[in-house]
Amino acid sequence: MSDVWGENLPILYGRSVATGELVHVDDAPNGKACGCVCPDPGCGQPLIARNNGKKKIHHFAHIGGTCAWSAEYLLAELALEVIRERGCVWFPELSYEVPETHLPERISKGMELPVDCAEKIEVEGRKAPAIGLDVRTSRGCARYVFVPELAHVLGGEQIASLRKECRGIVKIGFRGLMRSMKTLEHYDREELAVRIQSKAVMEELLSGGRQRHLSWAWNAKAKELSDQAWKLYAQRKEEERQKADAEKERRAAIDQARREKTRLAAAKRAEKERAQLAQATKAAAEREAAREAWEEAHPVQGRAIRDEARRQKALSDMDRAREIMAPIVDDARKPAKGLGGKRWYRCEKCGKVGPADEFAVGDVGGVWNRGMCLECA
């Protein structure tokens, strides 16, 4: 028993060659005389009943090697027998994932429903059968499929093939059940093999006693509601995107209008400045023409004015400032303020006029001033 979770799980039931019914290993003769074959018709190997030992659990063994699907086939047979005997089966809670929060939204709680008909059905790609159930609901009779899983999980293509003929697919998780029993109930490997193939555990499982090991692989109603939720979510997101795009376009239009307004204002200012410049140029030309006309009419005065202009142009800024301040600073003892608030003085020795930084500090006639330039000082 190298892999208690998978293909090498020892089987406790064989199919009687005489009756075709399942026979427990303790009810069969020991050895090859048990008259049983593998419960999986795809295998059909003769079995050996090992029910005479005291150290290992009693079980059937294949003569020609272990069968990969015998355990799952046997569990499907046991589940079908229990469902037929009980006439009802537990369905797990049904829910779907909310798109925005990714949290489950419950559609219906787990419940036990009556079964009108239960039968084995073949599943494409699986060598163990599933259980097809006709179940009475508030809306009439509906077809559901229960699939035992142990060593071989239910694949996407298998689910797709089953979806065409039923309203929902429920997985019976025997591997998870065995792990839970080992962890929480502390069964050893041999006890697990016995417990998982007992009718008591199967009845407990299919009546809702171990609900967490029954789960939906697919459900038409959940799919429909999930598709509707995703559609509404996509519509809402599309509306939000359209609103965001509209707001973006509105802001872009506002920015464009603001830029256009700024451009027009700048163009208007530039036009006004050009007009003012043209007007000033025209006025300057008119003044120059008037000056030339006046100088032609008054040649002597005009010559004097031109000479003065040339002289002023040749002077530096400081020289012009000295000429301007010379008549103002007429007393060496009394400084005067010039442009920019600077104090200007006249030297009492040389008569030079200049700003304060060109004069020394001195006491002239008891009055504190700067009446003597640095050169004279």
Rank of each mutant, 00 (worst) to 15 (best):
Ala193Cys: 13
Met202Trp: 01
His186Ala: 14
Glu204Cys: 08
Glu190Cys: 07
Glu191Thr: 01
Val194His: 04
Ser180Thr: 10
Leu206Ala: 03
Arg210Ala: 10
Gly209Ala: 07
Glu185Tyr: 13
Glu191Tyr: 00
Val194Asn: 00
His186Met: 11
Ser198Leu: 04
Glu191Val: 06
Ser180Met: 08
Arg189Tyr: 11
Gly208Val: 09
Lys199Phe: 13
Ser198Lys: 03
Tyr187Asp: 07
Ser198Arg: 02
Ser198Glu: 08
Gln197Cys: 04
Ala200Phe: 09
Ser198Gly: 13
Gly209Tyr: 02
Ser180Asp: 14
Ala200Pro: 00
Gly209Thr: 06
Glu203Ile: 10
Gly208Arg: 02
Glu191Gln: 15
Val194Trp: 01
Glu204Thr: 08
Gly209Phe: 09
Ala193Tyr: 01
Leu205Pro: 02
Met202Gly: 04
Thr183Lys: 14
Asp188Lys: 07
Glu185Leu: 13
Ser198His: 00
Ser207Cys: 07
Asp188Leu: 07
Leu184Lys: 10
Arg189Ser: 13
Arg189Thr: 15
Leu184Ser: 09
Lys199Ala: 07
Gly208His: 05
Gly209Leu: 04
Arg210Gln: 04
Asp188Met: 05
Arg189Asp: 15
Met181His: 00
Ala200Val: 13
Arg195Ile: 12
Ser198Ile: 03
Glu185Trp: 11
Met202Ala: 14
Glu185His: 13
Arg189Gln: 15
Glu204Arg: 09
Ser198Thr: 05
Arg189Leu: 12
Ser207His: 02
Ser180Ile: 01
Ala200Ser: 08
Ser198Pro: 00
Glu185Val: 14
His186Gly: 06
Gly208Pro: 01
Glu204Trp: 10
Lys199Pro: 00
Val201Arg: 02
His186Gln: 12
Ser198Trp: 00
Arg195Ala: 14
Ser207Glu: 03
Ala200Asn: 08
Leu206Gln: 02
Leu206Asn: 01
Ser207Tyr: 00
Gln197Thr: 05
Glu190Ala: 15
Ala193His: 02
Val201Trp: 06
Leu206Thr: 06
Glu203Phe: 05
Val201Tyr: 04
Lys182Ser: 14
Leu192Tyr: 03
Thr183His: 09
Glu185Ser: 13
Leu184Ile: 10
Ser207Phe: 03
Leu206Cys: 04
Met181Lys: 06
Leu184Ala: 11
Lys199Thr: 10
Glu204Val: 06
Lys199Tyr: 12
Leu184Thr: 11
Thr183Gln: 12
Glu190Gln: 15
Ser180Arg: 05
Arg210Lys: 12
Glu203Leu: 05
Gly208Ser: 04
Thr183Met: 12
Arg210Leu: 11
